[in-house]
Computed example of a mutant assay.
Amino acid sequence: MLLEETKKILKEAGWYEGRKIDISEHIKFLEDMGYEVFDALKKWLEEFGDLKIILEDEPFDDDNNYYTVEYSTCIKEIIGSYKKNINQDEKAEEKTIPVAEIANNEILVYISESGKFYTYEGLFDSNTDNFFNSTFAHDHCERPLTWIELGKDDHLDRYLEKSGQQK
């Protein structure tokens, strides 16, 4: 369930309960980029696609410094500059497609066929409501799990193997 704080932020960006936008142009764009479009993505895009969220005065650090943070769910802007399909399919072990940029375009967020959200670091959230609540209502969030914690990163294994160490 979306928290009221989260709903307020999304509504300011143009979202409303029951929103269902035409995504046919997005589907064609994604397929032309080499993505296999799946139902969880379609449902998510219809309700949350094409939103730009700008939050001013977000806390930056413990010294009470503040800054503006931008978020986007505009698919063409998010992945349009890439010339190929970028995904986290291998590590997620299911199809993924980037659907959001957070932290001033620093982090791509991918939705998976099962509706989970990933970043390049690992599992970000388990569903849409948790994704938005943890992004906008910071005290209501799941702790992201890294690929290593998920057992999906063999970087440590390769390092230990090269150095002659064991796990």
Rank of each mutant, 00 (worst) to 15 (best):
V109P: 00
L150Q: 10
F124S: 01
L3M: 09
F136C: 05
L3V: 10
E149D: 12
K20T: 05
D157Y: 07
Y120L: 01
C141K: 07
P59G: 09
W147Y: 10
L10G: 08
Y110A: 01
G164R: 08
S126H: 11
K11Q: 14
I86L: 03
C74P: 06
T146Y: 08
V37K: 10
L10P: 02
E4K: 13
N85F: 03
L108Y: 13
G80Y: 09
C141D: 09
Y71I: 11
V69D: 07
G80Q: 13
T6R: 06
D39S: 10
I21D: 14
I86G: 04
L30F: 00
F132K: 02
P59M: 10
Y118E: 00
E47D: 14
S112T: 02
G34K: 13
N133W: 05
E31C: 09
T6G: 04
Y120P: 00
T146H: 09
A103E: 11
H155L: 12
L3G: 07
A13G: 11
E121D: 12
L41R: 02
K91M: 12
W44P: 00
I53H: 09
H140W: 05
L55N: 11
F48I: 01
I54G: 09
D129Y: 09
T128P: 05
N65D: 15
L156I: 13
L145D: 03
L160M: 13
L145K: 12
G164C: 10
H138G: 08
K52D: 11
L55H: 06
E31V: 14
R158D: 06
H155N: 07
E17S: 13
E5D: 14
Q166F: 10
S81V: 15
R19V: 08
E25N: 15
N104E: 12
Y118K: 00
Y159F: 09
G14P: 12
